[in-house]
């Protein structure tokens, strides 16, 4: 249903875009040199890649220069706050509000302080892994282990995307076996290599990782110290179904689905399963001219209607996911509300 709706929106935006593209160029002064600041400092990471793909498409479509600067979240928010003329915009993902929910310094309520723009893509890779030799075969085994008072140590990066799955898991244990959630403990660490290292050292039983970074480790023979196994992908099943049938690396889409709800079930409220898709979206200065918001929506609508960007995104294991600003903001606000409940319940 939702999918249909966004499809319709795309079609409509595309239609309106076709009708209005001539006119809009005249009434909205889009910056000739658009700067996109991103919430990550890495130029090798998924945020940068995603933004680079979108930036390239926008530059081709609008005939302007678009460049992506990996300034990191606090500098990006700071710059965005200062510049309201639309010459600088931001692209980030769910971290932008999760950081706020977890109370990390330097994060704000983006829905109050900024304007949330369109979503462009999903990184479906957020996952949890165990050593290949682990006694736990599934995420359910881990829940049961906690229920029977075994301590499970989970390596995560605190305060955001890496922690939300951990919080959800804790919440699920609390719902099913109240009081036992204390058996699930966080080992707070940093980068992916640090998380892997904790697993190799036997300092963690479960780690947060990603399909992209960890898939090859799951292909190693069990006797290799580095061998791992997926137990849970937090993505929605319909997201994984949009990947190519070959899936990623040597793991087919069908196999990936084994680790996704409903097969790997972590309940959110006793009824439906918790899911988390890392979605990339635009963030604007609150005072930016609404006409620019519309113009960018329109341009992106046309880009997605053409269908070329989807291929590029899928090649890098991103799931295309265009929602125009208004729809995206409402959707993300709801998403934040749901996670707020989870985080509050395990505080």
């Amino acid at each position: 249903m939702k999918f249909l709706k966004s499809g319709l929106a795309v079609a409509m935006a595309a239609f309106m875009g076709l009708a209005a593209s001539q006119a809009s160029a005249a009434d909205v002064e889009l910056a000739k040199n658009l700067r996109i600041v991103i919430g990550s400092k890495s130029t090798g990471g998924d945020t940068y890649q995603n933004s680079a793909i979108v930036a390239q498409a926008l530059a081709d479509k609008l005939g302007i220069n678009v460049k992506v600067d990996a300034v990191g979240s606090s500098a990006a928010f700071k710059t965005l706050r200062r510049i309201s003329n639309g010459s600088t915009i931001m692209i980030f993902h769910d971290q932008s509000y999760l950081g706020y929910l977890y109370g990390v310094k330097g994060y704000f309520n983006i829905f109050e302080d900024f304007t949330v723009g369109p979503t462009v893509a999903i990184n479906p890779g957020n996952s949890y892994l165990v050593p290949k030799s682990s006694p736990y075969q599934s995420i359910e085994d881990i829940i049961q282990a906690c229920a029977s008072d075994k301590k499970i140590r989970v390596a995560i990066q605190p305060g955001g995307v890496s922690e939300i799955g951990f919080s959800a898991l804790k919440n699920a244990i609390k719902l099913r076996y109240p009081g036992k959630e204390a058996n699930l403990v966080a080992v707070n660490t940093g980068s992916q290599s640090d998380k892997n290292q904790l697993l190799f050292d036997g300092q963690a039983d479960l780690i947060n990782g990603s399909v992209q970074a960890n898939e090859q480790y799951t292909q190693l023979p069990a006797e290799d110290q580095k061998a791992m196994r997926f137990v849970w992908l937090t993505a929605r099943p319909e997201t994984i179904k949009q990947t190519k049938p070959e899936g990623f690396g040597d793991t087919s889409q069908e196999h990936l689905l084994d680790f996704v709800s409903p097969k790997a079930s972590v309940t959110q409220d006793g009824e439906k399963d918790f899911t988390f898709d890392k979605e990339f979206f635009f963030i604007y200065n609150k005072k930016m001219d609404p006409a620019i918001v519309d113009a960018l929506d329109e341009a992106l609508g046309e880009i997605y209607a053409e269908g070329k960007i989807q291929e590029t995104q899928k090649k890098s294991f991103f799931i295309p996911n265009f929602k125009p600003s208004a729809e995206a903001a409402a959707y993300l606000k709801d998403k934040m509300g749901q996670y707020e409940v989870i985080i509050d319940s395990i505080k």
């Binding site: 090798g44 992916q192 290599s193 690396g249």
Partner: peptide, 25 residues
């Protein structure tokens, strides 16, 4: 599949852009 310094961290981008997976294999 893990960069040893800041420059190789950027190199990762070049691989993923081409759809090449880095890792133990």
């Amino acid at each position: 599949g893990i960069p040893g310094d800041s420059t190789t961290a950027v190199l990762i981008g070049a691989f993923t852009l081409q759809g090449i997976q880095l890792g133990p294999l």
